[in-house]
């Protein structure tokens, strides 16, 4: 199985095939509904984002609390369409990879084409399995959002499927 390390280079993305399974390693940031709302509010106010979004990978996930001796709780993907209205603004700032589940809308796909981004799907509900691939987790902002806070995760061999590419090709039926 192919390995991909984040942050990625553009040349890493071109050879990927739709439906191809890859193992992701490196740094990813969790953000879901409430965190997206806050990020876009910051952008609209012209303020600096709490992490460098240029070239970053965002994972749509709100984990369970970490049980003793684990860095994080179960942490599967949440449904991506709820982030669609916020996504183009983040892509324009350089967001490179999104990880979630389910189809994206046309605006997101158009913005992915414009900005050369990649959308990966993790298996929804495989939260205990994905939890095993997370080596560390740190809340970096919005702690008041609880499960929806932005976390910086270090992942190793995190299984994902190439779902939508920057040329608009998609795996979804």
């Amino acid at each position: 199985m192919k390995h991909l390390t984040v942050p990625v280079k553009d040349t890493d993305l071109q050879p990927l095939k739709i439906g191809e399974e890859i193992l992701l390693s490196g740094t990813i940031y969790t953000a879901r509904d409430a965190a997206h709302k806050k990020l876009v509010e910051l952008i609209n106010k012209g303020k600096k984002l709490p992490f460098d979004i240029d070239g970053a990978a965002i994972y749509y996930s709100g984990p369970c609390p970490a049980p003793p001796n684990f860095p994080i709780g179960p942490c599967g993907p949440t449904t991506s369409y709820r982030m669609d209205s916020y996504t183009p603004q983040l892509l324009d700032l350089g967001l490179k990879i999104m990880i979630g589940k389910g189809k994206r809308n046309d605006n997101v796909v158009e913005s992915m084409k414009k900005n050369g981004a990649l959308y990966l799907a993790a298996t929804g509900g495989a939260a205990a399995l994905l939890m095993d691939c997370v080596k560390s987790s740190t809340v970096i902002c919005f702690p008041e959002l609880g499960a929806e806070a932005i976390r910086k995760l270090e992942v190793k061999n995190f299984p994902v499927i190439v779902a939508t590419k920057a040329n608009g090709e998609t795996v979804y039926r």
């Binding site: 399974e21 996930s61 709100g62 984990p63 369970c64 049980p67 684990f70 709780g73 179960p74 942490c75 599967g76 949440t78 298996t123 929804g124 509900g125 495989a126 939260a127 205990a128 399995l129 939890m131 095993d132 499960a147 299984p159 499927i161």
Partner: peptide
């Protein structure tokens, strides 16, 4: 591949005594 992950996830949740799904 997805069905195998779902199956494996059921086993890991059981072994580690953690929720199957974060939701």
């Amino acid at each position: 591949s997805i069905l195998k992950q779902i199956q494996k996830n059921i086993e890991i949740a059981d072994q580690n005594n953690v929720p199957l799904c974060q939701d």
